[in-house]
């Protein structure tokens, strides 16, 4: 930030105008989020049941209620560029308890979809895409799990693509159709070289 009044940058940032002028919102964003999430995102009355139910909130800056507010008012850029968007564990506790019968989790998922369209996405999510592409699993089996499974009397690998790798090409076909893998590879390469 430029030194407008000659203050140090940190102070300048502290003193910047934070008023909500109304024009930095996009009513279309509310409609799009509603459409993708298939829930009444505009009906939130900010009671906070979601944040109070959230296992992430007490130990992070993630505030699901704040994202709901952004959905109501159409704060598109603020919602999509906030890194907290990616801290939801999708446990659905908020959806279980919301008194307005909204599915806040699905609102977050919708916003993540919209963010991805702008290439806004943490690399670890993309690595998950790559893992699914190659193994059929977001979290592939590993030696620790294999040992544990055997100890519990189960097969080392679950009856999924791990046991039936012939189905992996089918999964790849789906991901390719949506260009998910290609986009993931591209963004990872841009970020990590």
């Amino acid at each position: 930030m430029a030194k407008v009044k000659g203050y140090p940058e940190a102070l300048e940032n502290k003193l910047r105008d934070r008023r909500f002028y109304g024009e930095d919102t996009n009513p279309e964003f509310t409609k799009t989020v509603k459409k993708i999430s298939d829930t009444i995102a505009h009906m939130c009355y900010q009671c906070g049941t979601c944040t109070a139910s959230c296992p992430s909130a007490p130990r992070s800056s993630y505030r699901i209620r704040k994202f709901m507010r952004r959905a109501v008012l159409g704060f598109e850029n603020e919602a999509l560029t906030d890194p907290d968007l990616w801290l939801c564990t999708t446990c659905y506790s908020c959806t279980d308890r919301c008194p307005r019968d909204i599915a806040p989790t699905d609102v977050i998922m919708a916003m993540r979809n919209l963010a991805f369209k702008r290439d806004i996405i943490p690399v670890n999510f993309l690595k998950t895409v790559q893992a699914i592409y190659t193994t059929g699993h977001g979290v592939p089996n590993n030696d620790v799990n294999r040992t544990a499974r055997k100890k519990l009397g189960m097969a080392a690998d679950p009856p999924t693509t791990h046991s039936y790798p012939e189905f992996i090409p089918g999964i790849q076909k789906i991901l390719d159709y949506f260009k998910l893998k290609a986009n993931a590879d591209r963004i990872v390469k841009e970020r990590e070289g």
Binding site: Q46, C47, G48, T49, C50, T51, A52, S53, C54, A57, P58, R63, R65, K66
Partner: peptide, 13 residues
């Protein structure tokens, strides 16, 4: 009792 102090923007117990 678990709630969100919405005015403070902090979850509370």
């Amino acid at each position: 009792v678990y709630a969100d102090d919405t005015l403070l923007d902090r979850p509370m117990e």
